[in-house]
Simulated assay, not measured.
Amino acid sequence: MPTLSRYDELLALPGATAAGEFSDTGRLLGYQGNISEQAAEIAAMMCAANRLMGNMQAKGWSAYTGQGGFYPVLGFAVSGGRYTACIMGRYGVFLETEKADFDRTFATLSRYL
């Protein structure tokens, strides 16, 4: 489990409401923020599933078009309007979309790869 300082760093990002870590199988490894444990567990599964789906799509796109550079997926964002989840590697942070600084968020997350 990571030190709390990683979660604190992620929660200090503009608009951040929750941050966590998940396994490749979607198991919640830890979290901090304004989210219930049950919601964090579901978020962990969502993050792992979306990363897996993104890799499948990126690999298929690369094979179909002959263009590389999309696989493997290192990070992604899912936005539902008011909130956005930004994921890179095994870490993710939930942000209020209007307050988010996506460049800063992904720069921070990229240090945990």
Score class of each variant (00 low, 15 high):
residue 69 G to V: 03
residue 82 R to S: 10
residue 104 R to M: 09
residue 94 F to H: 07
residue 85 A to L: 07
residue 86 C to H: 13
residue 76 F to Y: 15
residue 28 L to A: 09
residue 49 A to N: 13
residue 47 C to V: 12
residue 66 G to W: 10
residue 69 G to F: 03
residue 2 P to D: 03
residue 112 Y to N: 09
residue 9 E to R: 15
residue 58 A to T: 15
residue 55 N to Q: 04
residue 7 Y to I: 08
residue 17 T to E: 03
residue 55 N to E: 12
residue 4 L to F: 11
residue 75 G to E: 00
residue 39 A to F: 08
residue 110 S to R: 13
residue 84 T to H: 10
residue 9 E to T: 06
residue 72 P to Y: 10
residue 15 G to W: 08
residue 49 A to F: 13
residue 53 M to I: 00
residue 110 S to V: 01
residue 77 A to Q: 14
residue 32 Q to F: 03
residue 54 G to V: 04
residue 97 T to C: 02
residue 81 G to E: 04
residue 36 S to G: 14
residue 34 N to A: 03
residue 7 Y to G: 09
residue 7 Y to C: 06
residue 81 G to N: 06
residue 82 R to T: 11
residue 77 A to D: 15
residue 52 L to R: 12
residue 75 G to W: 00
residue 47 C to N: 12
residue 60 G to K: 13
residue 21 E to S: 05
residue 113 L to D: 10
residue 107 A to D: 13
residue 51 R to K: 11
residue 54 G to Y: 06
residue 102 F to I: 12
residue 29 L to K: 08
residue 112 Y to W: 14
residue 19 A to I: 13
residue 94 F to L: 09
residue 98 E to A: 07
residue 80 G to R: 06
residue 98 E to C: 03
residue 31 Y to C: 08
residue 107 A to Y: 05
residue 17 T to N: 08
residue 51 R to S: 07
residue 39 A to C: 04
residue 57 Q to M: 15
residue 51 R to P: 00
residue 28 L to P: 10
residue 48 A to R: 03
residue 18 A to K: 09
residue 67 Q to F: 10
residue 105 T to R: 12
residue 63 A to E: 14
residue 96 E to I: 12
residue 74 L to A: 09
residue 100 A to K: 07
residue 45 M to C: 15
residue 96 E to R: 15
residue 56 M to R: 15
residue 56 M to H: 14
residue 54 G to Q: 01
residue 19 A to T: 07
residue 21 E to R: 14
residue 103 D to V: 00
residue 45 M to V: 12
residue 39 A to E: 13
residue 10 L to E: 01
residue 5 S to V: 02
residue 37 E to I: 01
residue 39 A to L: 13
residue 73 V to I: 06
residue 91 Y to M: 05
residue 18 A to W: 08
residue 74 L to S: 14
residue 47 C to A: 15
residue 58 A to V: 13
residue 89 G to C: 02
residue 15 G to F: 07
residue 72 P to M: 01
residue 13 L to D: 06
residue 7 Y to A: 05
residue 77 A to M: 14
residue 15 G to Q: 02
residue 13 L to N: 09
residue 50 N to T: 01
residue 80 G to T: 02
residue 15 G to C: 05
residue 90 R to F: 01
residue 26 G to N: 04
